[in-house]
């Protein structure tokens, strides 16, 4: 990987992505070979927002590489509560750890934090900005199940605030992927993501109805539409109800359609889909371990 940090999917080249995915495949095939790879290494976990799977999977990934983690703990019990700046927090934790993972509610937090530290930093979500490590495991899952070239993907749900969507759409421009974006008009892609997609030569094909494109999709990436994005409950229910996937919806889909979701889901994918061959979202979540191990391995090796 060319850079010392992973801040945004825009920074990732095809080579960077393939290096991580290939390493993840090696780890998947022979995890024992990596068990002591980073013995003695400490990863700092700084989560200023709640997180279950991202925090746990980075924690597990570091430990499976032989290292350890130090966790800032909840914001309520940290010095952040006393008014400490993010810039100070990361400079302090940098002294305790060999690399940092940061999640923060403000967009641009990871970009700023990286200005203040020298150890590798992974952006584990900055507000409605980016979530590039999620993207790497998404890409790994897509590659395993559908391949990463010559495919058509539909990305559906909250495209405006969904950071996993922003990172995924931008990273996919490195591949021969036909992207469709399906959302209510009020939750379409933000201006800056459109700008990046156009700048990379990708076309932005937007739809308000899934059935306009469903039959041609190889992959459907579903995201949660959040209640708090709507001024009133009725409007939310109306919109959210239109972007749900169940057996009936999938009648028009290809038999090989791969359904993904960054999780947590609420009710946008009916549990009746879970046991079908379409459902890859739990596999996707499990892929967080080898992919984050691969990412840490590469970033920490850069630092050697």
């Amino acid at each position: 990987m060319r850079q010392d940090h992973l801040i945004s999917a825009v920074d990732l080249s095809r080579e960077d992505i393939e290096a991580v995915l290939d390493r993840a495949a090696e780890i998947d095939a022979n995890p024992a070979a990596f068990r002591q790879r980073h013995a003695g290494t400490v990863l700092g976990l700084c989560f200023f927002e709640p997180s279950t799977r991202t925090r746990m999977s980075f924690d597990t990934a570091m430990k499976r590489l032989g290292g350890q983690t130090v966790d800032m703990g909840p914001v309520e019990s940290s010095s952040v509560k006393k008014g400490e700046t993010l810039a100070d927090t990361v400079r302090v934790v940098e002294g305790y750890a060999d690399a940092l993972v940061l999640r923060h509610p403000s967009e641009g937090a990871a970009t700023m934090a990286a200005e203040f530290i020298d150890v590798p930093l992974v952006n584990a979500g900055d507000g409605a900005g980016q979530h590039p490590s999620q993207t790497l495991l998404d890409l790994y899952t897509i590659r395993e199940n559908a391949g990463l070239d010559d495919i058509t993907i539909g990305i559906m749900g909250d495209l405006k605030y969904g950071r996993t969507v922003h990172s995924l759409a931008e990273a996919l421009t490195n591949f021969d992927v036909n992207q469709h974006f399906i959302s209510p008009e009020s939750l379409q892609l933000p201006r800056n993501v459109r700008y990046d997609l156009h700048a990379s030569g990708a076309s932005v094909k937007e739809h308000t109805e899934l059935d306009e494109v469903l039959p041609e999709l190889d992959v459907l990436y579903v995201t949660r539409i959040q209640r708090e994005r709507f001024p009133d409950e009725n409007e939310y229910r109306k919109v959210a109800g239109e972007y749900k996937i169940d057996d009936e919806t999938l009648a028009a889909a290809s038999d090989d359609l791969v359904i993904m979701h960054p999780l947590p889901r609420v009710d946008e994918i009916s549990p009746e889909i879970d046991d079908s061959d379409h459902a890859k979202y739990f596999e996707q979540a499990h892929n967080g371990i080898p992919v984050r191990m691969a990412l840490l391995d590469i970033l920490l090796s850069n630092d050697d």
């Binding site: 700046t85 993010l86 810039a87 923060h104 509610p105 403000s106 967009e107 641009g108 937090a109 970009t111 700023m112 200005e115 900055d126 507000g127 409605a128």
Partner: peptide, 14 residues
């Protein structure tokens, strides 16, 4: 930055 949620609008030394 017009994005009120941008870190550059927070009380950070930047």
């Amino acid at each position: 930055c017009p994005n009120r949620n941008c870190i550059s609008n927070a009380d950070e030394p930047i």
